[in-house]
Each structure stands twice: as C-alpha cells, then as structure tokens.
Design a protein around this nucleic acid. Structure first.
Lengths: 201, 201
DNA sequence: GCGGTGACTATCCGTTTGCATAGGGGGATG
DNA sequence: CATCCCCCTATGCAAACGGATAGTCACCGC
C-alpha cells in the first residue's frame, strides 16, 4: 500500500482529506499538524512515496519548507493550499513541487491527482496558470521598494543599489527596513527569499 | 473532434507527431512550420483547444512566443522541445505553458499528455523537476556547506546558524565564504538566491 | 608514513547592515 | 487647506558580515 504523508495545521481539513484518501484511494496516509512535525514524521515513519504540505502552516516559511522536505525525503512533494493564487502555484512548481493542490479541488479529482503524482508526473490545474497575470498578494510594496528588493535579490550591496537608483545609501537602508517589515522578513536575505517566493518582482 | 495546432520546423518530427495524434488520439491536428505561420493559422483556422509549439523554431524567440500565442488564442499552449533542459521546462511553466513535452516522450504518453492538458490540467514529466539540479554549473558543496546555505536561505544570522549546528560562529563564516566562492556569489544573499535557483538544497 | 581534504577554532580588522531619530519636498485626496 | 503617503536626506551607533591569516584534528587513499 502506498504511503502518503499529509501535513496541515487545520485538523478538520487534514483529517477529512486523509480519510478520503484512505477510503477512496486505498492509501496509507500518515498526518502531521505542523511543518516541523512533518519533518520528524518523515524521518521516523518513512519512507513515503508522496508528501503533501500545506502552504500556510507553522514552520513552512513560504516555500523554503518545500525545499527542505524534498532534500530530506527525496520523494515527490506537493503543495496544498486554501488561499491559492496562481502565482504561488507556479512558484511552487518552479521550486520543484510535484504538484499543486487547491483545497477547492473536487474530492474525486484529488485521488486522481495523487495517483498522477505517484506515477511520476506533475499535477496542476490549468486555471492556476491562465488567470495568472495579476497576482496581488496581500503584500503591497511601493515601486521604489520593489526596485530595492530587486537589487537585493541580485546580491547587490546597499551602496550599489543606491548608485544604480541614483539615490543615497541611507535611503536604500530605509527602503530595506520598510520592505522587510512589510514582508515579515528578519533581514535582507530573508526578504530576498520571500520576495522571490511571493513573486513580488 | 478536438482541434489541435502543432508547430515545428522539422517536417519529419512535425508530421510524425501529427499523424500519431490523428490515428492514436483521434484528434484534428493542424500543423505549421514556423511561429509566424502558427500565429496566422491560429487566427485563420481557429479556434483550437490546444496549441503545441516547438521551443527552438523560427520566430519563437525562446519563450516570448509562448506569451504571444497565449494572448492571441486564449487556449492552452504547450511547449515541445528536443533539447530539453529542466531549466527551460520550469521557465515554460512559469510563463504560463500548459505543459512541457520532451520529444523523447513515449508515443503513448504523448496522447495521454495531450488528453491531460485538454482536460484543463498541466502536463510535465517529473524528472524535469527533480533532476533539475542543472549540474551544468558543476557545483559541489560539502554537506556542511549545504547546512549553512540552508540556514542562510532561511534568513538566519551566522550566530543562529552556529547555534543550530552546534559549532562556532567563525566556522559558519568560513563555510559562508567558501560556499559563496564555489557558487560565484558576491555575498550571502546572492548565495541564497543562486542556491535556490540551482536547487542545491 | 604522507599528502590531501573536510571540519573546526582563533584573532584581528575594515566594511556593511540594521535601526533609531529627525527632518524636507511633492503629490494625491478629503 | 489639512492630511496623508511616498520619496528622499542626514547623523550616529551597535551589530553583523566579509575576509585574511594561522593554525588543530580526523579521515582516507596512495
């Protein structure tokens, strides 16, 4: 029987989906309620043939959890999301996710999606690509902040960014501080990662 | 009967695939031998339910042809490629392609892939994500360097990384320096971005 | 044994970040 | 006009980073 790992912090959602996969899909489903627990479970009760991670979940830290889980287990990892924006879906795939599962997915489609991923292909509903042009995530940076963030992602120093934008270095620092606060980043590097994950540039 | 548009400048490949889709899939396949012809055909003989474009083809201009075709037809557009690198595949999906079809795909898989895309989902073989190491760059980090790089991508300071790995901060700095040199990064932020782009963790 | 390599520690130094405080100008909106 | 918001600048300071140099220790292959 194929072993799946499902991690979601909402108990109702988690257990509903798990039960459905057990009954309708005949899978052996193990659950976890946080990213850290998922990592522990993956180590303790593995190997799994597919891991499904909720996108907004304690410890997930946007998409960096995806990379960590992939690195540890080496098995296909899918992203599960309720507040699904097309852009997040695309980025998930770019980061190596085996699939993107919106929670609005019809139950029967879920089973076929899981089978699809188990057979070594990528699952993703098309509507998450077509509508994808306007991706207003809840974060809204000012144009200047985006400029600075772009510079950060290119590994530039504040001084370089200042020269490129023809402003003073102190001003760059100001933007770095404010955009980091808006993104909930702990420093410029974190801001760069979150900015890329959220597709802000 | 579902109408498909297939554009490829190599006649043999184009007609072989087209015939196969007609016979085995029962599709109505129209062909074109350049991107510009594909655009004309799409306007003249449309609408189509799926368009397949060769990645390297006169007028395609890498992936910018994908966006133009999507904008004009509004229907799913897949990328067909012989010289398939995982990177191109990822970029294709990020640019809104409905699928990525390597020409090495088994014929029968091609039909199922087309059906998959017609049903509104995205097709992509997993090996183009998992093997996406893109080891052209031939970076080989030591295990410890990967640990440190992972910490950097999570926005941690050297001090935090040191505590987590139970080593001294100076040692972390050493690893940061060496892994940055290996990656060709200008600083830790740049290293984090390159590390994520190259899928090193 | 010997050389090579990975991992680690130490001290020192200049540069860069990060953060706080304290403003000025311009444009939009009420 | 008053009031935001965005953008810019300035000064100052503590912390973190980046780099150089100089080692120790353990492991592995020849």
């Amino acid at each position: 029987m194929q072993k799946l790992l499902l991690a979601d912090d909402h108990e109702l959602v988690r257990e509903t989906i798990a039960d459905f996969l057990r009954l309708q899909g005949g899978f052996d489903v193990v659950t976890a309620q946080s990213f850290d627990e998922a990592i522990s479970v993956a180590r303790a009760k593995g190997p799994f043939e597919l891991v499904m991670l909720d996108y907004s979940m304690p410890g997930m830290d946007a998409l960096s959890g995806l990379a960590r889980m992939r690195a540890q287990t080496g098995c296909p990892v899918a992203i599960l999301s309720g507040t699904a924006t097309p852009d997040v879906a695309r980025r998930a795939l770019s980061s190596g996710a085996s699939g993107f599962l919106p929670k609005t997915l019809a139950p029967q489609s879920l089973v076929s999606a899981v089978r699809h991923m188990l057979s070594g292909e990528v699952y993703m509903p098309l509507e998450f690509l077509n509508n994808g042009e306007t991706n207003e995530t809840d974060v809204n940076l000012t144009p200047r902040e985006r400029d600075v963030l772009l510079g950060i992602t290119e590994g530039k120093s504040n001084k370089e960014i200042a020269r490129d934008l023809d402003i003073q270095e102190v001003t760059v620092k100001l933007h770095v501080k404010t955009l980091s606060r808006k993104l909930g980043a702990r420093n410029r590097t974190h801001a760069a990662m979150l900015g890329r994950d959220l597709g802000l540039m």
